[in-house]
Amino acid sequence: MEVRTIKVFTTVDNINLHTQVVDMSMTYGQQFGPTYLDGADVTKIKPHNSHEGKTFYVLPNDDTLRVEAFEYYHTTDPSFLGRYMSALNHTKKWKYPQVNGLTSIKWADNNCYLATALLTLQQIELKFNPPALQDAYYRARAGEAANFCALILAYCNKTVGELGDVRETMSYLFQHANLDSCKRVLNVVCKTCGQQQTTLKGVEAVMYMGTLSYEQFKKGVQIPCTCGKQATKYLVQQESPFVMMSAPPAQYELKHGTFTCASEYTGNYQCGHYKHITSKETLYCIDGALLTKSSEYKGPITDVFYKENSYTTTIK
């Protein structure tokens, strides 16, 4: 009895394709271990004539594949690729409408935090270190965002349907971005203890939790000093293409032309909904596939993004 075979390709990165001759009487799992086709788990399936010449994702289970996976995804987590594939199996079914010149995501599976993050990423200057993220990001900007969303979920250790947080998501993504040249110098002034300067680099240099107003941050924000008295913390120097200011959701007025974009969060910790506000020729609110415009805006804002380049204080 002759062994019926077909020729397929296996890959971990969709760049390096490895030619395989597979036995049609055995499952993919018996031949390769966990195997995925377009995100779908085909591990328990036997090869079919229609699979001839198709590319299958496999887990990096030998040295060659491990090197290829690390170079593309910059992670050695053995569960990463499987999590990416199972997320992709959902995100490829989502709709990605162009809204006001940006790629958004039609609401499904509690994905409003991903839509808000995706919209924000198209408006701030950011370059990702893992080629996987950078490639998928370019495709997302062009309207094909399924891979990018699935990668975000995998890097953030999230599953489809789980509630997510924009600030946490951005923080994970910033860790995989090139923020080497970003720098922030802060000064804390206390009447009792004097003053202390701190220099922050990388992710810490672009994120701040405690106030939404970048102007206020430049002037000074009140913080408790270690001595128990009130101290003032203010920005001395900022070198970065953008800054992200966050605070627990509270009524906040966004003035046209003073910011790049913002995240609105309605609801409580267990259950809520994100919308995205962007400042173009007027203010726009993007909620999944829905767009509304207004000249002014007041609502429960939790993150505001500002364009920056270089700032030095005039406070002496």
Rank of each mutant, 00 (worst) to 15 (best):
V3S: 14
T5W: 11
V8W: 06
N16G: 06
L17H: 12
Q20F: 08
Q20E: 10
V22Q: 06
M24H: 04
M24P: 12
S25T: 14
T27R: 10
Y28L: 11
Y28N: 01
G29V: 06
G29Y: 09
G29M: 10
G29F: 08
Q30H: 13
Q30L: 13
P34N: 13
D38H: 10
D38R: 09
V42M: 13
V42F: 14
K46V: 15
H48Q: 12
E52D: 12
Y57E: 06
L59D: 12
D62G: 09
T64W: 07
L65S: 11
R66Y: 09
V67K: 10
Y72C: 07
H74W: 05
H74T: 02
T76S: 13
T76G: 14
T76N: 09
F80D: 02
L81G: 05
L81K: 04
L81R: 05
G82Y: 08
G82F: 13
G82H: 15
R83A: 09
M85P: 05
S86F: 07
A87N: 15
N89V: 14
T91N: 06
W94E: 04
Y96Q: 02
P97V: 12
P97W: 11
Q98D: 09
N100M: 10
L102H: 07
S104I: 04
W107F: 05
A108Y: 03
C112K: 03
C112R: 03
C112M: 05
C112W: 02
Y113K: 01
A115E: 02
L119A: 07
L121H: 01
I124K: 04
E125K: 08
E125R: 07
K127F: 09
K127Q: 15
K127Y: 08
F128D: 05
F128M: 05
P130R: 04
P131C: 02
L133G: 04
Y138C: 14
A140N: 02
A142L: 12
E144I: 06
A154M: 03
N157L: 04
T159Y: 12
L163R: 15
D165W: 02
R167W: 02
E168L: 08
L173V: 09
F174T: 04
F174N: 01
A177R: 01
R184H: 02
L186K: 00
C190P: 03
C190H: 04
T192F: 09
T192W: 07
Q196G: 07
Q197G: 04
K201F: 12
G202M: 01
M207L: 07
Y208E: 07
M209G: 09
S213A: 05
S213M: 00
E215I: 02
E215W: 06
Q216R: 09
K219D: 08
I223Y: 10
P224I: 14
C225G: 01
T226S: 15
K229C: 09
Q230T: 14
A231V: 03
A231G: 03
A231S: 05
K233S: 13
L235W: 00
L235C: 09
V236C: 08
Q237D: 07
Q238D: 02
E239G: 02
E239F: 08
P241H: 08
F242D: 00
V243D: 01
S246L: 04
A247C: 10
A247D: 04
P248T: 09
P248W: 12
Y252G: 01
E253R: 09
H256R: 12
H256N: 08
G257E: 11
F259G: 00
C261E: 03
C261H: 00
C261M: 00
A262H: 00
S263D: 02
Y265W: 04
G267L: 07
Y269M: 15
Y269T: 15
Q270S: 15
Q270E: 14
G272L: 01
Y274K: 02
I277N: 00
K280P: 00
K280V: 10
T282D: 14
L283Y: 02
I286C: 02
G288V: 01
A289H: 13
T292F: 13
I301A: 00
T302D: 00
D303Q: 00
V304P: 00
F305W: 08
K307S: 15
K307N: 12
N309T: 15
S310V: 14
Y311G: 06
Y311C: 00
T312I: 10
T312H: 10
T313K: 14
K316P: 15
